[in-house]
């Protein structure tokens, strides 16, 4: 019973961090109908930037803030440099998709260049900032509590931005009818850049939270987690914020339960098992509606 509860708590914390990555896939998909596979590498970049600036002794929180901004800018730059030119040329969607995969490799390999960070793992400052909470024989690390609280707060803020602000209205407008958004005077390119920036910034925060929990980073850290978060976004219904959250939680809890009861080797495949099941049972995900294709 207590191991079950422990696994669920682990899963919820991790799942909220996945949700933070998943919203990046989801929002970009919303405005561009594109799966941005470079997103996982932005997550890794975010964690590396925290590591780098901490090593420059600027302090953990300033380092995280700088990493957030730089990762947002990286995501935005990927779009401006590699994706927007393709959109302007109206190239086929698969070309853009492959470009995002290519960008992901470029970033990951740049991180692992010897005189940059190198391919080996590095220790990451722990986010266990206060004593763990012990209930019975369940121990909840403070980094898990921080992960959960920060992710929940950020996702609430994000929901507020999308639902209640002018830029959020513009995002929803672009999502539903890009042509009409142009026609009412929305600066569509700005909305797209903004979306990439927010996605990249959230990925960096997730990177700091997850690296701070495991205490370790490596250049390829974004590839598996990126795919898991992508699965989470699809499981919840891609394009929808609350879908990303529920998808993230389902994936997080499922993999912690699997690790607990079936062995740690079963952990990583769980996200994809759920993804495949969902694609068979309800291809649009939990909250997905039919007709989320461009009007």
């Amino acid at each position: 019973m207590q191991t079950l509860l422990g696994a669920i708590i682990n899963g919820l914390a991790l799942g909220m961090a996945y949700a933070l990555i998943a919203v990046g896939y989801s929002m970009v998909f919303g405005v561009l109908r594109l799966i941005n596979f470079s997103h996982g590498s932005v997550y890794a970049f975010g964690a590396y930037m925290v590591y780098f600036f901490v090593s420059l002794k600027v302090g953990l929180f300033p380092a995280i803030l700088i990493a957030i901004v730089l990762s947002g800018l990286l995501a935005l730059t990927i779009d401006k440099v590699a994706l927007e030119p393709l959109r302007r040329k109206k190239s086929i969607p698969i070309a853009t998709l492959i470009t995002t995969i290519g960008m992901s490799f470029i970033i990951q390999n740049t991180l692992s260049i010897d005189y940059i960070f190198g391919s080996e793992k590095h220790g990451f400052p722990s986010l266990n900032l206060f004593a763990p909470i012990v209930i019975g024989n369940i121990t909840i690390q403070s980094s898990q509590i921080i992960m959960l609280v920060v992710a929940v707060v950020l996702l609430l803020i994000l929901t507020f931005v999308v639902q209640k602000t002018k830029i959020g209205l513009a995002m929803r407008a672009v999502q539903q009818n890009t042509k009409a958004a142009h026609m009412v005077g929305v600066n569509v390119n700005f909305v797209i850049s903004f979306t990439f920036f927010i996605g990249g910034a959230c990925a960096a925060i997730a990177g700091a939270l997850i690296a701070g929990y495991y205490g370790i980073i490596s250049p390829s850290m974004g590839s598996t987690i990126g795919l898991k978060a992508f699965s989470a976004a699809v499981v919840g219904g891609i394009g929808m914020l609350h879908g990303a959250v529920v998808g993230g939680l389902v994936v997080g809890v499922a993999e912690c339960l699997a690790a607990q009861y079936l062995g740690s080797n079963v952990r990583d495949p769980m996200a994809f098992v759920i993804l495949i099941l969902i694609l068979i049972i309800k291809p649009t995900g939990f909250f997905g509606k039919k007709g989320i294709t461009k009007v």
Binding site: R172, A173, Q176, N177, K179, A180, A181, M183, V295
Partner: peptide, 12 residues
Amino acid sequence: ISPEGREVFPAL
């Protein structure tokens, strides 16, 4: 502009 084919935002 009020465009041909209306072009409303369908889910708003």
